[in-house]
Design a protein around this nucleic acid. Sequence first.
DNA 1: CTCAATACCTAATCGAGCTAGGTATAAAGC
DNA 2: GCTTTATACCTAGCTCGATTAGGTATTGAG
Lengths: 115, 115
Amino acid sequence: MDSRLLSGAVEMLMLEVISHGRTYGYEISQTVDSRSNGYFSLKEGSLYPALHRLEQQKLVKSSWHEVEGRRRKYYELTSAGIKALDAKKQEWQAFASGIQGVLGDGQSATVVPAV
Amino acid sequence: MDSRLLSGAVEMLMLEVISHGRTYGYEISQTVDSRSNGYFSLKEGSLYPALHRLEQQKLVKSSWHEVEGRRRKYYELTSAGIKALDAKKQEWQAFASGIQGVLGDGQSATVVPAV
DNA sequence: CTCAATACCTAATCGAGCTAGGTATAAAGC
DNA sequence: GCTTTATACCTAGCTCGATTAGGTATTGAG
């Protein structure tokens, strides 16, 4: 799929997944992948920098934990993160219906008659 | 609005507008603007380079015309452009339902992949 | 002992939207 | 006449973020 489309929604998706409970980068990418039936794939080069941006914006906070011999950086939403997720979801709805509005009354593509 | 969201859909929107009939850059931006109730605004710095990309990909073709003392570069879809628009619309539908799937109930999304 | 999966990270590249300029004509206001 | 606004096109440079393609380290399976 066109990564350009996804790029506007990556942070919303990540916040959404984190909102379901404390989780970590690798699991987030697996979750997004499986919940979209493999349609979305968050590459590591997008995922980790995005997590760092979210943390810098104080929308998430992190803590290292050792589980089953693996060090993981767990993330959870801050209260600002909860609000931001809500705002992003609303923005997404507005955006999606805006697109439908432009696509909407248009039928399928047709050939343009000559001038 | 977040231009990042829009960035994946710019070319689809432009192709869609052009599919309604021969038109030109300035009018395309006005149309997108008005059809989305001002929600989307295609800046000139995005619009014109995008038109040139579409033309280079042979999805549109252009011709200069003088109308009411104004020179305009009119665009229309090629047959490849018609197909591309159709594909982009399907991809958009798949993408949007994929997002809904992740946002929605947390169950797997039913995504119809674009051909 | 090697390979795959798990789990994190980042430097370099690249694509595309935005800013902020430019040119030019027509119409409306003063 | 002169200026401003709208129309109509263009592009160089900036910036942001996704991808590519590497790196480190541990665990478990073959």
